[in-house]
Design a protein around this nucleic acid. Structure first.
Lengths: 223, 223
DNA sequence: TTCTGACAGATTGTAAACAATCTTTTCAGT
DNA sequence: ACTGAAAAGATTGTTTACAATCTGTCAGAA
């Protein structure tokens, strides 16, 4: 696992993010500055900066004078995350219905057609696992025309979702159902029906949570 | 403007945040590392860390190899901010209606009673300016029982709001109206009516934006 | 045996020096 | 006078060294 090129702060941040999301760095694992500095053939400065960036992205936790660890996402965290998504993404769907052009909604339909192929190819619910679901949600967020919402979702919440899924190994088989819900949402967006688009997105995310919650160990860390 | 005690990273971050929000550091102003290091009697390391923290909090912008500047919030930014608030805070109100205890809603009413005194004392619309409005919204966010929503609002969005208001000097006189809207929201929360609470909060924030938008120069920086 | 406290090792926090990049100035050429 | 390139200055990015803090171990007393 040796790094070849001499990277610097931004690159190291990206590398660590990727490794965490890929599951190469396990939740709870310590991220020592010296160890990482040696691994990247760089001094502690850039590593330190990268670690702070991970903490800000909520992918790691920092205890002052002690160190940084890969974040562990418990049941309460996951629930909060999905509640937040309900508010944020229903707003994104609402704005998308207000602003998306006909060409954009067409592209969205094409995206779902591609997903349909994936679902039939891997019927055992690889839809959500393979990131197709995230693709759809990112596009809707982009169509909202709101840079803040797009950034929040794609750069903060979705990485946390990936981390959570990896930690709890949920391979939920909601592919077919989710795809149908996606189509209804696109219909509402194409109809310029803000209220319905927001409502359907809210329900979609809530259904997703209801299907996912039982898969998460209730080994409840309260705090 | 000399600092007395030898502060370190976290303290410097807090100091700079306060100064930006207090308007002592104007939007667009450069935040040079060496200058700040001398001002705080500290080396560039902690200053650098504090600056990155400001950038993550969206209170400053970073251009690599160039420097950090206090963030300028244009019309498009303000609009995006309020759209985001609609989604986030209506969700907070919904969750508050679901979870707040009777004691908590009572305290919320008491808070508004206190605000009523402030409004009658300063009838010229000092309500929103004095932070009373923010107080209410923070409490509702807390009552949502969702730590992520609370953190996002109180530590990211509201500081940006303060910065925006300072930049555009909006002293909107919506005090009496806003207070009444607040009371209706509390009523819905006390009634455990999630839908109405969410709807009223959404309208409240939208009204706030409609009253505020004209006050912002449309000297549109497109990007 | 178990708890307390001090010491040693390791790790994070900060300071100071060096390297790389950008900005501004200067000056030659048109 | 104006354009453009090159050099000087200033600023950020990185490295190295030092200080402060924490964790774990071990001796000693209850």
């Amino acid at each position: 696992m040796q790094e070849i090129a001499r990277l610097s702060a931004a690159s190291i941040t990206a590398s660590l993010k990727d490794e965490i999301l890929a599951g190469q760095l396990l939740p709870g694992q310590r991220l020592g500055e010296v160890a990482l500095a040696e691994r990247f053939s760089v001094s502690r400065g850039p590593v330190r900066e990268a670690l702070r960036s991970l903490v800000d992205a909520q992918l790691a936790t920092l205890v002052p004078n002690v160190g940084v660890r890969v974040r562990e996402i418990g049941f309460a965290d996951a629930q909060a995350l999905y509640e937040l998504r309900e508010g944020l993404e229903s707003e994104a769907a609402r704005l998308a219905a207000r602003r998306a052009t006909v060409g954009q909604t067409e592209q969205l339909r094409l995206l779902l057609d591609g997903h349909a192929v994936s679902v039939t190819a891997h019927p055992a619910g690889a839809y959500l696992q393979s990131g197709s679901d995230t693709d759809f949600h990112v596009v809707v967020a982009a169509l909202s025309g709101n840079p803040m919402i797009l950034r929040l979702l794609s750069e903060e919440l979705y990485p946390q979702l990936v981390l959570m899924r990896r930690q709890h190994q949920n391979v939920q088989g909601r592919g077919q159902t989710a795809l149908m819900e996606h189509r209804r949402i696109v219909d509402a967006i194409a109809d310029r029906d803000e209220e319905v688009a927001a409502l359907l997105m809210r329900r979609h995310i809530r259904n997703s949570w209801l299907s996912l919650a039982p898969q998460i160990e209730n080994g409840g860390e309260t705090k």
